[in-house]
Design a protein around this nucleic acid. Structure first.
Length: 295
DNA sequence: TATTTTACCTGAGGGC
DNA sequence: TGCCCTCAGGTAAAAT
C-alpha cells in the first residue's frame, strides 16, 4: 500500500479533508474539526512505513517553519479491514468511507485518498515526529531519522536494513512465552500478524507453542530467515487477500498464496499430514502436527 | 514487573 | 424470513 501511495502523495498539497466517522480518528488527540483544520493546505513529503504503521510526513506551514525537517505526520493504521484507496475526484463514496483527503499534485493533478474501513479497527491521526532511538531512518520510505511518537515503541520490521537481529535473539532467549506470541509482539519485531506468523513457523518447522527460550540459536536463525522470506513474498504478491478487505491503493486483491493459514484439514505441502487448527490468543493457529512437533 | 486477557468493531455465514 | 451465535484480528488498556 505504501508503494502505491508514495508516488501519488509525495509533493501533493492537501486541498481538503472530510471526516465522515469520528471513530476513524481514535488515534488522533483532537476532534474531527481539529484534524481537518490542521491538514488543510499542508504539503505531503512522502509515504513511510514501519511494520503495520504508515505515515506521511507533512511540510511545516511556511510561517512557522523553524527548520527543514518535518515536525509532524499524518499517521495511518489499517487495523484489520482498513484501506487507503487512491481515487479520482468524482468516484463513488462506497459504504464504509470514513475519511476523505483531497489532494492537488503538481504532476498528477487532482486526486483523493479515501480511508475506507469496514470493521473500524483502523484509524488516522496527526502525530508529532520524534528522533529514532537508533539514529537510522524512521522506516521504509522515510527520508529522515524520525518516527511518529505513537510508532516509536514499534520495533523495526525484519526486512529493515537497521533491524537488530542480535536483539531479537536476546529477547527470544529470555522469553518463556510461546514463540508465536512473541512473533506477534510488535515491540519485538513488526509487520508479522496472525497469517504470516503461522506461515513462517510452518516454513521453519517450529510448533507455535514452543517456548521462545527453548529455541536453539540455529532454530532462531531459521525462523528469522523464514519470517523474512514470508514477508518478501507477500510484498511481491501485493499482500494476502483472505477476504475482500485486503487490497492495494487501487482496490486490487493481493495474490499471495498460503501453506497453512486457513488450510485446516488440507494435506501439508511437505508431508501430506492434515493441517491442524487450534485456538490461540482468541484467534487461530494453523500448523502441521508432523512437521511442527509440539514441544 | 511481566505476562495474559479483554474490548473495540462490522459483516458474513451457519443453525434453528 | 429472521433471530442469535460465532468468527475474522491489530492494538492497547485492563486484569492477573
Amino acid at each position: 500500500m505504501r508503494l502505491g501511495l508514495a508516488p501519488a502523495v509525495s509533493r501533493a498539497t492537501i486541498s481538503g479533508v472530510e471526516v465522515f466517522d469520528p471513530r476513524a480518528l481514535t488515534r488522533h488527540d483532537g476532534d474531527a474539526r481539529d484534524f481537518e483544520a490542521r491538514l488543510a493546505g499542508r504539503r505531503i513529503l512522502g509515504a513511510a512505513r514501519r511494520g503495520k504503521f504508515l505515515w506521511m510526513p507533512l511540510a511545516a506551514r511556511s510561517a512557522d517553519a523553524a527548520s527543514d525537517a518535518p515536525a509532524e505526520a499524518l499517521v495511518a493504521h489499517l487495523g484489520m479491514s482498513g484501506q487507503l484507496l487512491l481515487r479520482a475526484p468524482g468516484a463513488d463514496a462506497g459504504r464504509h468511507l470514513r475519511v476523505r483527503v483531497g489532494l492537488e499534485h503538481p504532476e498528477h493533478g487532482e486526486l483523493r485518498v479515501d480511508f475506507v474501513d469496514q470493521r473500524t479497527f483502523g484509524s488516522l491521526a496527526i502525530n508529532g515526529l520524534v528522533p529514532t532511538s537508533d539514529g537510522a531512518a524512521g522506516g521504509w520510505g522515510a527520508a529522515e531519522a524520525l518516527v511518529p511518537s505513537q510508532v516509536a515503541h514499534i520495533a523495526r520490521d525484519p526486512l529493515d536494513d537497521a533491524f537488530d537481529a542480535g536483539r531479537l535473539g536476546a529477547v527470544l532467549a529470555r522469553k518463556n512465552s510461546a514463540v508465536k506470541r512473541v512473533l506477534l509482539d510488535q515491540t519485538v519485531l513488526s509487520g508479522v500478524g496472525n497469517i504470516y506468523a503461522d506461515e513462517a513457523l510452518w516454513a521453519a518447522r517450529i510448533h507455535p507453542e514452543t517456548p521462545a527460550s527453548a529455541l536453539s540459536p540455529r532454530a532462531v536463525g531459521r525462523l528469522l530467515a523464514e519470517v523474512r522470506a514470508v514477508l518478501e513474498k507477500a510484498l511481491v504478491e501485493g499482500g494476502t487477500s483472505f477476504d475482500e478487505q485486503y487490497v492495494n491503493v487501487n482496490g486490487e486483491a493481493g495474490r499471495n498464496e498460503l501453506n497453512v493459514y486457513g488450510q485446516a484439514g488440507r494435506a501439508c505441502e511437505r508431508c501430506g499430514t492434515s493441517i491442524a487448527r487450534e485456538r490461540f490468543m482468541n484467534r487461530s493457529s494453523h500448523y502441521c502436527p508432523t512437521c511442527q512437533r509440539r514441544p
